[in-house]
Computed example of a mutant assay.
Amino acid sequence: MAEHVSILQQMGVAALAGAAAAWTVSRVRLARRSRPATEGHPTGGGLGVLPRQALPPVETVVLTPAERDAFARLVRQFGEGRH
């Protein structure tokens, strides 16, 4: 127990922590109660609340052999600066 903190301050922190825990439990219970009754888990394995997000398409660039060599030299040049 910290000596510079009074008993009232410690009781206040404990009361706030208890109130936060009680609020969290009540919110979870209310959220579960308001859900429609379904058998088993919702399909798709998601939360059911959040929409699925589509990922952007992967972009690729075809390099010529000269560009590939220039990129390799650049990577080696940057790698030498770390020693």
Rank of each mutant, 00 (worst) to 15 (best):
A2W: 07
A2Q: 04
H4D: 08
V5S: 01
V5N: 06
S6D: 04
I7S: 10
I7M: 13
L8A: 11
Q9T: 11
Q9D: 15
V13H: 08
A14C: 04
A15H: 00
A15N: 05
L16W: 07
L16K: 08
A17P: 01
G18V: 02
G18R: 03
A19H: 06
A19R: 03
A20V: 05
A21M: 13
W23H: 13
V25Y: 05
S26C: 09
S26Q: 07
R27A: 10
V28M: 13
V28D: 14
R29N: 12
R29M: 12
A31N: 10
R32V: 00
R32L: 05
R33E: 02
R33N: 07
R35S: 01
R35E: 03
P36S: 09
A37W: 11
T38E: 05
G40L: 01
G40H: 04
G40Q: 03
H41Y: 02
P42H: 14
P42I: 12
P42A: 11
T43R: 09
G44F: 06
G44N: 12
G44W: 04
G45E: 06
G45W: 02
G46Q: 10
V49Y: 12
L50V: 14
L50G: 10
L50R: 11
L50C: 13
Q53M: 15
Q53S: 14
Q53P: 04
A54F: 03
A54R: 07
L55R: 07
L55M: 14
P56L: 08
P56R: 02
P57Y: 07
V58N: 05
V58F: 11
V58A: 14
E59I: 09
E59C: 05
T60R: 14
V62A: 05
V62D: 06
P65S: 12
P65M: 04
A66M: 05
E67I: 00
E67Q: 06
E67P: 00
R68S: 14
D69A: 14
F71P: 03
A72Y: 05
A72T: 08
V75W: 03
V75K: 03
F78P: 02
E80P: 00
G81N: 13
R82G: 09
